[in-house]
């Protein structure tokens, strides 16, 4: 980190924070603090929705995913545009018609107070934990590669977000997200063109795609019906659809973005914008990762990209074994380079026979390299089982710190921290709103003025910000907390989505049947996870379908029996 990098990083982040505070001061009604005065245009809604979903991990992990496994991950997003259409056509008209401030308020109008309170509490548990992880995930990676103190970094990210989110509410979140998205896109474009410029002069963009394809990094689409492949076209349009529907349709951190739209149409167009741009954006981030792969075909790469992992093994009794693997790695890189030069020469001469032979040589070298890296990972694990051996989160940041010129390093760090802040801001904003409106205001006796509720919402937003910082600071004490958050998401999401679908599509089902079905489903989903009946990735669909079937069964039974069993 040069001084110029510090200046670029510091000035970018501080400008966004203080511009957000200055631009949105003086919210004195719940309407302006929670819905941003319902004045957002469609592009603000769209950018806000995209910035909320794109966290630091999107920019750290996705390029590394492409580096190791190619671009198949883009298929995970194929269900998202379909979910956007369903939300625009079904969810938004009802949210707007009932003029709700929170997603769960709708459930009271449709069912009853206990269903609203249950879903609000499920949201707070899940999103409260996730907000801590949104800060922790980039903090642990940046602290490992830059030597910064993990807790200090977590506290700084948290405080920067708290400053503008508490002060300006939803308006401040959307004002800053527009600037954060601008920084993110500019930074990623600079990185992309820098990589292209760093390749040998005779390697064009077209050639680099050919090289990536020859190394099996451009297998974008997979139409296999095998459920063991995590990312296929089919898993994308089914599992990805369910997940996107639950996340964008029922998670307040997203719902609050589009409820701030000036009209129903502006909200809908905002989500259409997201449905049109999300897949190209993810494709571009993955393409940056593939270009990093091509770059490392011409430049030396480490055996493992996580410096903490390398340090752990080199300071252990396995150092000698690791050195042998590293020598093998250098030899393989030399072999790959020979095969690569054969391939690019054959490409220029359009000698397809020689191209096929070179491709075979590259495939063999890649296979050996894969098993060599695998052996290195298991050696690191033996040396220290607490260190992260899967280095996909470290590939892009390693490339940034070791290859980008002065100034651009600071800009790319601003990209990563902006992404962390934009997601955290939406989460804290939603957590504060739900606590203040669904729990405090709904159950509070007496009449208070708007100013009181704005102050209360600010207070709860601040408290959730502090909780998120505390979670980020203690997260390293727990094993694999990041996966735990994903699992908790899967445990609750399906159930909540099912409740909303019941509200929209099954008008005859009433509150008691839904509430009992929801509690039963939640217990069964937790049981099926603890008994390992299915992978946690399927819990979403399981919970959603189960709660709908149970509620339909209970309501029908209730009507046939003439009602006594479920009256409370």
């Amino acid at each position: 980190m040069a001084i110029l990098d510090w200046i670029v990083l510091g000035s970018t982040l501080l400008f966004i924070v203080f511009y957000g505070v200055w631009k949105t001061k003086g919210s004195n009604s719940i309407e302006s603090y929670v819905k941003g005065g319902s004045s957002a245009k469609w592009w603000t809604v769209g950018l806000s929705v995209m910035a909320t979903q794109a966290s630091a991990i999107t920019f750290l992990s996705t390029p590394g995913q492409a580096y190791h496994d190619g671009m198949g991950f883009v298929q995970f997003y194929f269900g998202l545009p379909l979910a956007m259409i369903v939300i625009c056509a079904v969810f938004i008209p009802i949210y707007h018609k009932l003029k709700v401030y929170t997603a769960y308020e709708l459930l009271e109008q449709r069912f009853d107070l206990k269903t609203r309170t249950l879903t609000a509490l499920l949201f707070l548990v899940q999103r409260g934990l996730a907000a801590g992880i949104t800060i922790y995930a980039p903090a642990i990676i940046l602290s490992a590669v830059l030597g910064w103190d993990l807790k200090t970094l977590s506290i700084i990210i948290g405080i920067l977000v708290i400053i503008y989110t508490v002060s300006g509410g939803t308006s401040a979140v959307s004002v800053t997200q527009k600037q954060q998205m601008f920084v993110i896109m500019v930074g990623m474009f600079f990185a992309f063109f820098f990589i292209l410029g760093s390749l040998p002069s005779d390697i064009s963009f077209g050639n680099s795609l050919k090289i990536a394809g020859a190394n099996e990094k451009l297998n974008i689409l997979n139409f296999d019906f095998n459920t063991k492949n995590r990312y296929t076209f089919w898993s994308g349009i089914t599992g990805g659809f369910f997940l996107a529907l639950a996340y964008f349709g029922t998670d307040q951190s997203q719902v609050q973005r589009y409820l701030s739209g000036k009209s129903m149409r502006e909200s809908q167009l905002g989500l259409v914008f997201n449905g049109l741009l999300k897949i190209p954006m993810q494709f571009f981030i993955l393409l940056v990762g593939v270009m990093v792969f091509v770059f490392y075909q011409y430049n030396a790469s480490p055996l493992n990209f996580n410096p903490a992992a390398t340090e752990a093994v080199l300071n252990s009794s396995y150092a000698e074994d690791y050195q042998i693997l590293n020598d093998g790695h250098l030899e393989l890189e030399a072999q790959k380079k020979v095969a690569l030069n054969e391939y690019t020469s054959a490409l220029k001469l359009e000698d397809y026979g020689a191209m096929q032979r070179a491709k075979m040589n590259m495939a063999n070298a890649n296979l050996k390299e894969r098993s060599n890296r695998e052996a290195a990972r298991s050696l690191i694990n033996q040396a220290n089982e607490n260190v992260e051996t899967n280095d996909k989160d470290y590939v892009f940041i390693h490339f940034i710190l070791n290859n980008l010129p002065m100034g651009l390093v600071g800009l790319l760090l601003a990209v990563i921290l902006s992404a962390a802040m934009s997601s955290t801001a939406s989460e804290l904003n939603a957590l504060g709103t739900i606590t203040a409106l669904d729990l405090y205001k709904r159950n509070r006796k007496g009449d208070f003025n708007q100013k009181h509720y704005v102050m209360v919402t600010k207070g709860f937003t601040l408290i959730w910000g502090i909780i998120a910082i505390v979670i980020a600071c203690v997260a390293s004490l727990f094993d694999n907390l990041i996966q735990l958050v994903n699992i908790i998401g899967s445990i609750f999401y399906g159930n909540v989505l099912g409740i909303f679908l019941l509200a929209f599509f099954f008008k005859f089902v009433k509150g008691n049947a839904v509430f009992i079905a929801a509690l039963t489903t939640q217990a069964l989903v937790i049981l099926s996870y603890s008994q390992d009946w299915m992978s946690y990735l399927w819990l979403n669909a399981f919970g959603c379908i189960l709660v709908i079937l149970l509620a339909l069964f209970l309501e029908s039974l209730d009507r046939i029996m003439g009602s006594p069993p479920f009256k409370t």
């Binding site: 883009v74 194929f78 545009p81 956007m84 259409i85 625009c88 056509a89 079904v90 008209p93 009802i94 018609k97 795609l209 050919k210 990536a212 394809g213 020859a214 451009l218 297998n219 974008i220 689409l221 809908q268 167009l269 259409v272 449905g275 049109l276 897949i279 190209p280 494709f283």
Partner: peptide
């Protein structure tokens, strides 16, 4: 409620186009 709008058709068509484009990129570079 539940009105189909031309923007939704645009979302479907453009995303179908992206997938076709991905397929072409995949075929041309393999």
């Amino acid at each position: 409620n539940y009105v189909w709008k031309k923007e939704y058709t645009l979302v479907l068509l453009l995303n179908a186009l992206y997938i076709i484009l991905f397929y072409v990129i995949m075929i041309l570079n393999n």
